[in-house]
Design a protein around this nucleic acid. Structure first.
Lengths: 130, 130, 130, 130
DNA sequence: GTGGTCTAGACCACT
DNA sequence: GTGGTCTAGACCACT
Protein backbone atom coordinates (compact mmCIF):
# COMPACT_ATOMS: atom_id res chain seq x y z
CA UNK A 1 0.00 0.00 0.00
CA UNK A 2 1.06 3.52 -0.74
CA UNK A 3 -0.07 6.67 0.97
CA UNK A 4 -0.57 9.66 -1.29
CA UNK A 5 0.28 12.71 0.81
CA UNK A 6 -0.88 15.04 -1.96
CA UNK A 7 -4.34 13.53 -2.19
CA UNK A 8 -7.18 15.61 -0.83
CA UNK A 9 -8.40 12.57 1.06
CA UNK A 10 -6.94 12.77 4.58
CA UNK A 11 -4.28 10.18 5.25
CA UNK A 12 -6.24 8.53 8.05
CA UNK A 13 -9.10 7.87 5.63
CA UNK A 14 -6.73 6.50 3.03
CA UNK A 15 -5.50 4.05 5.64
CA UNK A 16 -9.03 3.16 6.70
CA UNK A 17 -9.94 2.54 3.06
CA UNK A 18 -6.93 0.32 2.65
CA UNK A 19 -7.70 -1.81 5.72
CA UNK A 20 -11.35 -2.04 4.79
CA UNK A 21 -10.38 -3.34 1.39
CA UNK A 22 -7.98 -5.81 2.94
CA UNK A 23 -10.74 -7.12 5.19
CA UNK A 24 -13.08 -7.32 2.21
CA UNK A 25 -10.39 -9.21 0.31
CA UNK A 26 -9.97 -11.70 3.14
CA UNK A 27 -6.41 -10.65 3.93
CA UNK A 28 -7.47 -10.15 7.53
CA UNK A 29 -10.06 -12.68 8.65
CA UNK A 30 -12.60 -12.48 11.48
CA UNK A 31 -11.07 -12.96 14.93
CA UNK A 32 -7.56 -12.33 13.59
CA UNK A 33 -5.58 -9.44 15.00
CA UNK A 34 -4.70 -6.44 12.88
CA UNK A 35 -1.19 -4.95 12.77
CA UNK A 36 -0.44 -2.85 15.84
CA UNK A 37 -0.50 0.92 15.63
CA UNK A 38 3.24 1.19 15.77
CA UNK A 39 3.89 -1.58 13.27
CA UNK A 40 1.57 -0.08 10.70
CA UNK A 41 2.78 3.46 11.42
CA UNK A 42 6.37 2.41 10.79
CA UNK A 43 5.43 0.58 7.61
CA UNK A 44 3.49 3.50 6.18
CA UNK A 45 5.88 6.13 7.54
CA UNK A 46 3.15 8.06 9.26
CA UNK A 47 2.51 9.10 12.84
CA UNK A 48 0.87 6.43 15.06
CA UNK A 49 -1.84 8.97 15.85
CA UNK A 50 -2.84 8.91 12.22
CA UNK A 51 -3.17 5.12 12.21
CA UNK A 52 -5.11 5.39 15.44
CA UNK A 53 -7.66 7.62 13.75
CA UNK A 54 -8.01 5.17 10.91
CA UNK A 55 -8.75 2.37 13.38
CA UNK A 56 -11.27 4.57 15.16
CA UNK A 57 -13.01 5.07 11.86
CA UNK A 58 -13.19 1.31 11.32
CA UNK A 59 -14.46 0.76 14.84
CA UNK A 60 -17.23 3.24 14.15
CA UNK A 61 -18.11 1.07 11.16
CA UNK A 62 -18.10 -2.03 13.41
CA UNK A 63 -15.52 -3.73 11.21
CA UNK A 64 -12.96 -3.81 13.98
CA UNK A 65 -13.13 -4.27 17.73
CA UNK A 66 -10.38 -3.29 20.15
CA UNK A 67 -9.66 -5.26 23.29
CA UNK A 68 -7.64 -3.34 25.80
CA UNK A 69 -4.17 -4.59 26.30
CA UNK A 70 -4.66 -7.30 23.72
CA UNK A 71 -5.07 -5.68 20.33
CA UNK A 72 -7.46 -5.07 17.50
CA UNK A 73 -9.60 -7.80 16.05
CA UNK A 74 -11.55 -8.14 12.89
CA UNK A 75 -15.22 -8.26 13.83
CA UNK A 76 -17.40 -11.30 13.16
CA UNK A 77 -19.33 -10.35 10.08
CA UNK A 78 -16.69 -7.88 8.99
CA UNK A 79 -15.78 -9.40 5.63
CA UNK A 80 -19.33 -9.26 4.35
CA UNK A 81 -19.86 -5.75 5.63
CA UNK A 82 -16.49 -4.50 4.34
CA UNK A 83 -17.26 -5.91 0.91
CA UNK A 84 -20.54 -4.02 0.84
CA UNK A 85 -18.85 -0.81 1.90
CA UNK A 86 -15.99 -1.19 -0.56
CA UNK A 87 -18.48 -1.84 -3.32
CA UNK A 88 -20.34 1.34 -2.38
CA UNK A 89 -17.03 3.21 -2.53
CA UNK A 90 -16.30 1.80 -5.98
CA UNK A 91 -19.72 2.88 -7.13
CA UNK A 92 -19.15 6.34 -5.69
CA UNK A 93 -15.99 6.74 -7.77
CA UNK A 94 -17.81 5.67 -10.89
CA UNK A 95 -20.68 8.04 -10.19
CA UNK A 96 -18.27 10.92 -9.78
CA UNK A 97 -16.58 10.05 -13.03
CA UNK A 98 -19.82 9.77 -14.98
CA UNK A 99 -21.15 13.01 -13.51
CA UNK A 100 -17.93 14.87 -14.37
CA UNK A 101 -18.15 13.54 -17.90
CA UNK A 102 -21.76 14.61 -18.27
CA UNK A 103 -20.98 18.06 -16.88
CA UNK A 104 -18.27 18.50 -19.52
CA UNK A 105 -20.77 17.28 -22.15
CA UNK A 106 -18.66 14.34 -23.16
CA UNK A 107 -20.88 12.03 -25.20
CA UNK A 108 -22.15 8.86 -23.48
CA UNK A 109 -20.06 6.85 -25.95
CA UNK A 110 -16.97 8.84 -25.01
CA UNK A 111 -17.54 8.29 -21.30
CA UNK A 112 -17.98 4.54 -21.78
CA UNK A 113 -14.88 4.46 -23.97
CA UNK A 114 -12.88 6.17 -21.23
CA UNK A 115 -14.04 3.48 -18.83
CA UNK A 116 -13.14 0.66 -21.22
CA UNK A 117 -9.73 2.13 -21.77
CA UNK A 118 -9.02 2.53 -18.07
CA UNK A 119 -10.23 -1.01 -17.55
CA UNK A 120 -7.97 -2.46 -20.23
CA UNK A 121 -4.94 -0.52 -18.99
CA UNK A 122 -5.41 -1.65 -15.41
CA UNK A 123 -5.96 -5.21 -16.55
CA UNK A 124 -2.81 -5.19 -18.63
CA UNK A 125 -0.97 -3.78 -15.64
CA UNK A 126 -2.31 -6.52 -13.37
CA UNK A 127 -1.32 -9.20 -15.89
CA UNK A 128 2.23 -7.95 -16.06
CA UNK A 129 2.65 -8.32 -12.34
CA UNK A 130 1.69 -12.00 -12.60
CA UNK B 1 -23.57 24.49 -9.42
CA UNK B 2 -23.45 23.47 -5.80
CA UNK B 3 -20.48 23.69 -3.50
CA UNK B 4 -20.00 20.87 -1.02
CA UNK B 5 -18.31 22.47 1.99
CA UNK B 6 -17.80 19.05 3.61
CA UNK B 7 -15.94 17.57 0.68
CA UNK B 8 -12.26 16.85 1.11
CA UNK B 9 -11.71 18.65 -2.16
CA UNK B 10 -11.05 22.32 -1.33
CA UNK B 11 -13.80 24.70 -2.39
CA UNK B 12 -11.53 26.59 -4.74
CA UNK B 13 -10.76 23.38 -6.63
CA UNK B 14 -14.44 22.47 -6.77
CA UNK B 15 -15.05 25.84 -8.39
CA UNK B 16 -12.14 25.41 -10.79
CA UNK B 17 -13.44 21.96 -11.78
CA UNK B 18 -16.88 23.39 -12.36
CA UNK B 19 -15.69 26.23 -14.59
CA UNK B 20 -13.37 23.90 -16.48
CA UNK B 21 -16.31 21.60 -17.20
CA UNK B 22 -18.43 24.56 -18.26
CA UNK B 23 -15.73 25.67 -20.70
CA UNK B 24 -15.41 22.10 -21.97
CA UNK B 25 -19.20 21.98 -22.39
CA UNK B 26 -19.17 25.21 -24.38
CA UNK B 27 -21.15 27.17 -21.78
CA UNK B 28 -18.42 29.80 -21.84
CA UNK B 29 -16.86 30.27 -25.25
CA UNK B 30 -13.43 31.61 -26.21
CA UNK B 31 -13.10 35.40 -25.87
CA UNK B 32 -16.27 35.60 -23.80
CA UNK B 33 -16.08 37.04 -20.32
CA UNK B 34 -16.51 34.84 -17.31
CA UNK B 35 -18.54 35.85 -14.25
CA UNK B 36 -16.63 38.41 -12.17
CA UNK B 37 -15.02 37.44 -8.88
CA UNK B 38 -17.65 39.23 -6.86
CA UNK B 39 -20.61 38.02 -8.89
CA UNK B 40 -19.59 34.40 -8.68
CA UNK B 41 -18.70 34.75 -5.01
CA UNK B 42 -22.17 36.08 -4.25
CA UNK B 43 -23.80 33.37 -6.30
CA UNK B 44 -21.86 30.56 -4.64
CA UNK B 45 -21.95 32.20 -1.21
CA UNK B 46 -18.20 32.04 -0.76
CA UNK B 47 -15.52 34.64 -0.27
CA UNK B 48 -14.25 36.44 -3.39
CA UNK B 49 -10.73 35.33 -2.46
CA UNK B 50 -11.81 31.72 -2.82
CA UNK B 51 -13.19 32.35 -6.30
CA UNK B 52 -9.97 34.12 -7.16
CA UNK B 53 -7.90 31.09 -6.22
CA UNK B 54 -10.06 29.03 -8.56
CA UNK B 55 -9.48 31.47 -11.42
CA UNK B 56 -5.75 31.55 -10.65
CA UNK B 57 -5.70 27.80 -11.05
CA UNK B 58 -7.43 28.06 -14.42
CA UNK B 59 -5.07 30.82 -15.50
CA UNK B 60 -2.15 28.55 -14.70
CA UNK B 61 -3.79 25.97 -16.98
CA UNK B 62 -4.07 28.65 -19.69
CA UNK B 63 -7.82 28.22 -19.89
CA UNK B 64 -8.52 31.72 -18.66
CA UNK B 65 -6.90 35.12 -19.06
CA UNK B 66 -7.45 38.02 -16.71
CA UNK B 67 -7.30 41.67 -17.61
CA UNK B 68 -7.07 44.05 -14.68
CA UNK B 69 -9.99 46.39 -14.44
CA UNK B 70 -11.73 44.65 -17.32
CA UNK B 71 -12.55 41.09 -16.42
CA UNK B 72 -11.79 37.44 -17.04
CA UNK B 73 -11.81 35.87 -20.48
CA UNK B 74 -11.90 32.36 -21.84
CA UNK B 75 -8.59 31.72 -23.62
CA UNK B 76 -8.37 30.93 -27.31
CA UNK B 77 -7.95 27.18 -27.45
CA UNK B 78 -9.57 26.72 -24.07
CA UNK B 79 -12.50 24.51 -25.05
CA UNK B 80 -10.32 21.83 -26.60
CA UNK B 81 -7.88 21.89 -23.72
CA UNK B 82 -10.61 21.90 -21.09
CA UNK B 83 -12.23 18.91 -22.71
CA UNK B 84 -8.96 16.99 -22.59
CA UNK B 85 -8.45 17.87 -18.94
CA UNK B 86 -12.00 17.00 -17.99
CA UNK B 87 -11.67 13.66 -19.75
CA UNK B 88 -8.48 12.94 -17.83
CA UNK B 89 -10.35 13.71 -14.62
CA UNK B 90 -13.15 11.32 -15.58
CA UNK B 91 -10.60 8.62 -16.27
CA UNK B 92 -8.94 9.26 -12.93
CA UNK B 93 -12.22 8.65 -11.11
CA UNK B 94 -12.75 5.43 -13.01
CA UNK B 95 -9.21 4.27 -12.30
CA UNK B 96 -9.69 4.89 -8.59
CA UNK B 97 -12.93 2.94 -8.65
CA UNK B 98 -11.45 -0.01 -10.51
CA UNK B 99 -8.38 -0.07 -8.26
CA UNK B 100 -10.52 0.03 -5.13
CA UNK B 101 -12.58 -2.85 -6.49
CA UNK B 102 -9.52 -4.90 -7.29
CA UNK B 103 -8.03 -4.21 -3.86
CA UNK B 104 -11.22 -5.49 -2.24
CA UNK B 105 -11.05 -8.53 -4.54
CA UNK B 106 -14.38 -7.85 -6.12
CA UNK B 107 -14.56 -10.01 -9.25
CA UNK B 108 -14.07 -8.25 -12.59
CA UNK B 109 -17.70 -9.06 -13.40
CA UNK B 110 -18.84 -7.46 -10.15
CA UNK B 111 -16.85 -4.29 -10.84
CA UNK B 112 -18.26 -3.97 -14.34
CA UNK B 113 -21.74 -4.60 -12.98
CA UNK B 114 -21.28 -1.79 -10.48
CA UNK B 115 -20.35 0.51 -13.33
CA UNK B 116 -23.35 -0.54 -15.42
CA UNK B 117 -25.67 0.02 -12.52
CA UNK B 118 -24.27 3.47 -11.76
CA UNK B 119 -24.56 4.29 -15.45
CA UNK B 120 -28.18 3.20 -15.67
CA UNK B 121 -29.15 5.07 -12.50
CA UNK B 122 -27.55 8.30 -13.64
CA UNK B 123 -29.11 7.95 -17.04
CA UNK B 124 -32.56 7.40 -15.58
CA UNK B 125 -31.97 10.47 -13.42
CA UNK B 126 -31.03 12.53 -16.44
CA UNK B 127 -34.11 11.31 -18.34
CA UNK B 128 -36.41 12.30 -15.52
CA UNK B 129 -35.13 15.84 -15.62
CA UNK B 130 -36.09 16.02 -19.27
CA UNK C 1 5.95 50.97 -27.99
CA UNK C 2 4.33 48.04 -26.30
CA UNK C 3 2.52 48.00 -22.98
CA UNK C 4 3.11 44.89 -20.89
CA UNK C 5 -0.11 44.36 -18.93
CA UNK C 6 1.50 41.54 -16.94
CA UNK C 7 4.37 43.65 -15.71
CA UNK C 8 4.32 44.63 -12.06
CA UNK C 9 5.03 48.20 -13.12
CA UNK C 10 1.69 50.04 -13.40
CA UNK C 11 0.70 50.85 -16.95
CA UNK C 12 0.70 54.60 -16.33
CA UNK C 13 4.34 54.43 -15.27
CA UNK C 14 5.23 52.33 -18.30
CA UNK C 15 3.72 55.06 -20.44
CA UNK C 16 5.55 57.80 -18.52
CA UNK C 17 8.82 55.89 -18.95
CA UNK C 18 8.16 55.59 -22.65
CA UNK C 19 7.48 59.32 -23.14
CA UNK C 20 10.41 60.27 -20.98
CA UNK C 21 12.68 58.13 -23.15
CA UNK C 22 11.19 59.64 -26.29
CA UNK C 23 11.90 63.14 -24.98
CA UNK C 24 15.42 62.11 -24.03
CA UNK C 25 15.85 60.66 -27.51
CA UNK C 26 14.72 63.89 -29.11
CA UNK C 27 11.59 62.40 -30.65
CA UNK C 28 9.60 65.16 -28.99
CA UNK C 29 11.48 68.45 -28.86
CA UNK C 30 11.02 71.45 -26.53
CA UNK C 31 7.95 73.54 -27.34
CA UNK C 32 6.49 70.77 -29.48
CA UNK C 33 3.13 69.36 -28.50
CA UNK C 34 2.77 65.81 -27.28
CA UNK C 35 0.08 63.45 -28.63
CA UNK C 36 -3.32 64.15 -27.11
CA UNK C 37 -4.73 61.93 -24.41
CA UNK C 38 -7.22 60.33 -26.75
CA UNK C 39 -4.76 59.81 -29.57
CA UNK C 40 -2.25 58.08 -27.36
CA UNK C 41 -4.94 56.12 -25.52
CA UNK C 42 -6.26 54.77 -28.81
CA UNK C 43 -2.80 53.90 -30.01
CA UNK C 44 -1.86 52.04 -26.82
CA UNK C 45 -5.31 50.53 -26.34
CA UNK C 46 -5.65 51.85 -22.82
CA UNK C 47 -8.10 54.11 -21.08
CA UNK C 48 -7.51 57.89 -21.50
CA UNK C 49 -7.44 58.16 -17.69
CA UNK C 50 -4.35 55.99 -17.68
CA UNK C 51 -2.57 58.23 -20.16
CA UNK C 52 -3.68 61.20 -18.10
CA UNK C 53 -1.89 59.82 -15.06
CA UNK C 54 1.25 59.28 -17.07
CA UNK C 55 1.20 62.92 -18.16
CA UNK C 56 0.61 64.01 -14.58
CA UNK C 57 3.70 62.08 -13.59
CA UNK C 58 5.72 63.85 -16.26
CA UNK C 59 4.37 67.23 -15.21
CA UNK C 60 5.49 66.51 -11.67
CA UNK C 61 8.94 65.92 -13.14
CA UNK C 62 8.71 69.26 -15.00
CA UNK C 63 9.33 67.55 -18.33
CA UNK C 64 5.95 68.53 -19.64
CA UNK C 65 3.73 71.57 -19.28
CA UNK C 66 0.01 71.61 -19.99
CA UNK C 67 -1.73 74.68 -21.37
CA UNK C 68 -5.45 74.56 -20.91
CA UNK C 69 -7.38 74.23 -24.10
CA UNK C 70 -4.22 74.05 -26.15
CA UNK C 71 -2.36 70.90 -25.30
CA UNK C 72 0.74 69.48 -23.71
CA UNK C 73 4.15 70.85 -24.45
CA UNK C 74 7.62 69.57 -23.88
CA UNK C 75 9.27 71.86 -21.33
CA UNK C 76 12.32 73.96 -22.12
CA UNK C 77 15.18 72.03 -20.63
CA UNK C 78 13.28 68.77 -20.86
CA UNK C 79 15.63 66.84 -23.13
CA UNK C 80 18.60 67.29 -20.82
CA UNK C 81 16.59 66.48 -17.76
CA UNK C 82 14.89 63.48 -19.35
CA UNK C 83 18.25 62.10 -20.40
CA UNK C 84 19.52 62.34 -16.84
CA UNK C 85 16.44 60.63 -15.52
CA UNK C 86 16.51 57.90 -18.12
CA UNK C 87 20.13 57.27 -17.36
CA UNK C 88 19.31 56.97 -13.67
CA UNK C 89 16.62 54.44 -14.59
CA UNK C 90 19.09 52.44 -16.67
CA UNK C 91 21.49 52.43 -13.76
CA UNK C 92 18.75 51.30 -11.41
CA UNK C 93 18.04 48.27 -13.62
CA UNK C 94 21.71 47.36 -13.69
CA UNK C 95 22.00 47.74 -9.92
CA UNK C 96 19.04 45.42 -9.41
CA UNK C 97 20.57 42.86 -11.72
CA UNK C 98 23.98 42.97 -10.06
CA UNK C 99 22.44 42.79 -6.59
CA UNK C 100 20.29 39.80 -7.57
CA UNK C 101 23.35 38.07 -8.97
CA UNK C 102 25.36 38.71 -5.82
CA UNK C 103 22.49 37.47 -3.64
CA UNK C 104 22.45 34.21 -5.59
CA UNK C 105 26.25 34.03 -5.22
CA UNK C 106 26.87 34.06 -8.91
CA UNK C 107 30.57 34.79 -9.42
CA UNK C 108 31.51 38.32 -10.56
CA UNK C 109 32.74 36.79 -13.83
CA UNK C 110 29.41 35.07 -14.32
CA UNK C 111 27.47 38.28 -13.73
CA UNK C 112 29.63 40.22 -16.19
CA UNK C 113 29.25 37.40 -18.70
CA UNK C 114 25.47 37.59 -18.38
CA UNK C 115 25.68 41.31 -19.13
CA UNK C 116 27.92 40.78 -22.16
CA UNK C 117 25.60 38.14 -23.49
CA UNK C 118 22.51 40.29 -23.07
CA UNK C 119 24.37 43.14 -24.72
CA UNK C 120 25.38 41.08 -27.72
CA UNK C 121 21.91 39.63 -28.17
CA UNK C 122 20.26 43.03 -28.07
CA UNK C 123 22.82 44.44 -30.45
CA UNK C 124 22.30 41.63 -32.93
CA UNK C 125 18.57 42.23 -32.63
CA UNK C 126 18.99 45.94 -33.34
CA UNK C 127 21.22 45.21 -36.34
CA UNK C 128 18.65 42.90 -37.86
CA UNK C 129 16.03 45.60 -37.78
CA UNK C 130 18.35 47.82 -39.79
CA UNK D 1 16.35 40.36 4.02
CA UNK D 2 14.24 43.47 3.77
CA UNK D 3 10.79 43.77 2.29
CA UNK D 4 10.01 46.92 0.35
CA UNK D 5 6.29 47.51 0.84
CA UNK D 6 6.34 50.36 -1.69
CA UNK D 7 7.80 48.29 -4.50
CA UNK D 8 5.58 47.47 -7.43
CA UNK D 9 6.68 43.88 -7.05
CA UNK D 10 4.19 42.18 -4.73
CA UNK D 11 5.58 41.22 -1.34
CA UNK D 12 4.98 37.54 -1.90
CA UNK D 13 7.15 37.65 -5.03
CA UNK D 14 9.85 39.59 -3.22
CA UNK D 15 9.90 36.81 -0.65
CA UNK D 16 9.94 34.10 -3.33
CA UNK D 17 12.84 35.85 -5.08
CA UNK D 18 14.73 36.08 -1.84
CA UNK D 19 14.31 32.41 -0.96
CA UNK D 20 15.17 31.37 -4.51
CA UNK D 21 18.40 33.35 -4.30
CA UNK D 22 19.17 31.82 -0.92
CA UNK D 23 18.70 28.32 -2.35
CA UNK D 24 20.86 29.25 -5.34
CA UNK D 25 23.49 30.60 -2.94
CA UNK D 26 23.47 27.35 -0.96
CA UNK D 27 22.11 28.96 2.20
CA UNK D 28 19.40 26.32 2.24
CA UNK D 29 20.54 22.95 0.97
CA UNK D 30 18.55 20.09 -0.55
CA UNK D 31 16.55 18.08 2.02
CA UNK D 32 16.99 20.78 4.64
CA UNK D 33 13.91 22.42 6.11
CA UNK D 34 13.06 25.99 5.33
CA UNK D 35 11.79 28.49 7.92
CA UNK D 36 8.18 27.75 8.81
CA UNK D 37 5.37 29.98 7.56
CA UNK D 38 4.85 31.55 10.96
CA UNK D 39 8.54 31.98 11.77
CA UNK D 40 9.29 33.74 8.51
CA UNK D 41 6.11 35.80 8.76
CA UNK D 42 7.15 37.06 12.19
CA UNK D 43 10.66 37.78 11.00
CA UNK D 44 9.53 39.73 7.94
CA UNK D 45 6.58 41.30 9.75
CA UNK D 46 4.09 40.16 7.17
CA UNK D 47 1.03 37.95 7.30
CA UNK D 48 1.62 34.18 7.23
CA UNK D 49 -0.69 34.01 4.21
CA UNK D 50 1.70 36.18 2.30
CA UNK D 51 4.63 33.92 3.10
CA UNK D 52 2.52 30.97 2.06
CA UNK D 53 1.90 32.46 -1.35
CA UNK D 54 5.66 32.83 -1.77
CA UNK D 55 6.22 29.18 -0.87
CA UNK D 56 3.39 28.12 -3.21
CA UNK D 57 5.19 29.90 -6.01
CA UNK D 58 8.41 28.06 -5.21
CA UNK D 59 6.57 24.77 -4.97
CA UNK D 60 5.19 25.37 -8.45
CA UNK D 61 8.79 25.85 -9.59
CA UNK D 62 9.68 22.53 -7.94
CA UNK D 63 12.29 24.21 -5.74
CA UNK D 64 10.42 23.44 -2.54
CA UNK D 65 8.31 20.57 -1.25
CA UNK D 66 5.83 20.86 1.58
CA UNK D 67 4.83 18.13 3.98
CA UNK D 68 1.71 18.82 6.01
CA UNK D 69 2.35 18.92 9.70
CA UNK D 70 6.08 18.54 9.12
CA UNK D 71 7.46 21.48 7.27
CA UNK D 72 8.92 22.76 4.04
CA UNK D 73 11.92 21.19 2.36
CA UNK D 74 14.35 22.19 -0.32
CA UNK D 75 13.82 19.88 -3.30
CA UNK D 76 16.52 17.55 -4.62
CA UNK D 77 17.92 19.38 -7.62
CA UNK D 78 16.80 22.75 -6.32
CA UNK D 79 20.18 24.51 -6.07
CA UNK D 80 21.01 23.96 -9.73
CA UNK D 81 17.57 24.98 -10.87
CA UNK D 82 17.44 28.01 -8.58
CA UNK D 83 20.78 29.18 -9.91
CA UNK D 84 19.50 28.97 -13.48
CA UNK D 85 16.36 30.89 -12.58
CA UNK D 86 18.25 33.54 -10.66
CA UNK D 87 20.62 34.01 -13.56
CA UNK D 88 17.67 34.45 -15.92
CA UNK D 89 16.32 37.11 -13.57
CA UNK D 90 19.67 38.92 -13.55
CA UNK D 91 19.70 38.86 -17.33
CA UNK D 92 16.18 40.21 -17.42
CA UNK D 93 17.22 43.24 -15.36
CA UNK D 94 20.17 43.89 -17.64
CA UNK D 95 18.01 43.57 -20.73
CA UNK D 96 15.54 46.09 -19.34
CA UNK D 97 18.38 48.46 -18.56
CA UNK D 98 19.95 48.17 -21.99
CA UNK D 99 16.60 48.55 -23.74
CA UNK D 100 15.76 51.65 -21.69
CA UNK D 101 19.13 53.11 -22.59
CA UNK D 102 18.65 52.42 -26.28
CA UNK D 103 15.16 53.89 -26.22
CA UNK D 104 16.55 57.10 -24.72
CA UNK D 105 19.26 57.06 -27.41
CA UNK D 106 22.07 56.91 -24.93
CA UNK D 107 25.19 55.95 -26.86
CA UNK D 108 26.41 52.34 -26.48
CA UNK D 109 29.51 53.72 -24.76
CA UNK D 110 27.35 55.62 -22.30
CA UNK D 111 25.27 52.55 -21.48
CA UNK D 112 28.35 50.43 -20.88
CA UNK D 113 29.83 53.20 -18.75
CA UNK D 114 26.69 53.26 -16.62
CA UNK D 115 27.07 49.53 -16.09
CA UNK D 116 30.75 49.85 -15.16
CA UNK D 117 29.97 52.58 -12.71
CA UNK D 118 27.17 50.64 -11.04
CA UNK D 119 29.47 47.65 -10.89
CA UNK D 120 32.28 49.58 -9.25
CA UNK D 121 29.98 51.24 -6.72
CA UNK D 122 28.40 47.96 -5.68
CA UNK D 123 31.79 46.35 -5.43
CA UNK D 124 33.12 49.14 -3.27
CA UNK D 125 30.04 48.76 -1.13
CA UNK D 126 30.64 45.03 -0.77
CA UNK D 127 34.28 45.62 0.14
CA UNK D 128 33.37 48.06 2.87
CA UNK D 129 31.18 45.51 4.56
CA UNK D 130 34.16 43.15 4.76
C1' DG E 1 -17.42 48.60 -11.88
C1' DT E 2 -12.99 44.92 -12.50
C1' DG E 3 -8.98 41.96 -10.93
C1' DG E 4 -4.73 41.74 -7.49
C1' DT E 5 -2.67 41.97 -3.00
C1' DC E 6 -2.64 42.02 1.80
C1' DT E 7 -3.97 41.63 6.84
C1' DA E 8 -6.17 39.48 10.85
C1' DG E 9 -7.84 35.67 12.49
C1' DA E 10 -10.23 31.13 12.39
C1' DC E 11 -10.37 26.00 11.93
C1' DC E 12 -8.60 21.59 9.96
C1' DA E 13 -5.37 17.54 9.29
C1' DC E 14 -1.18 15.88 10.70
C1' DT E 15 3.40 15.48 13.77
C1' DG F 1 4.23 22.60 16.76
C1' DT F 2 3.47 22.37 11.00
C1' DG F 3 1.20 23.48 6.40
C1' DG F 4 -3.61 24.29 3.95
C1' DT F 5 -7.99 26.53 3.45
C1' DC F 6 -11.28 29.95 4.24
C1' DT F 7 -13.71 34.34 5.67
C1' DA F 8 -14.21 39.34 6.24
C1' DG F 9 -12.71 43.33 4.91
C1' DA F 10 -9.29 46.79 3.26
C1' DC F 11 -6.74 49.36 -0.38
C1' DC F 12 -4.62 49.65 -5.06
C1' DA F 13 -4.42 50.06 -10.27
C1' DC F 14 -7.22 50.25 -14.07
C1' DT F 15 -11.92 50.82 -16.93
Amino acid sequence: MRIDPNSHVPIYLQIADYIREAIAAGVYRPKETLPSLRTLALELVVNPNTVQRAYEELEREHLVRSRKGVGLFVAGEAAESARAKSQAAVREHFVRGIRAGQAARLSPERIRAVFQEAWRDLHAEAEQRT
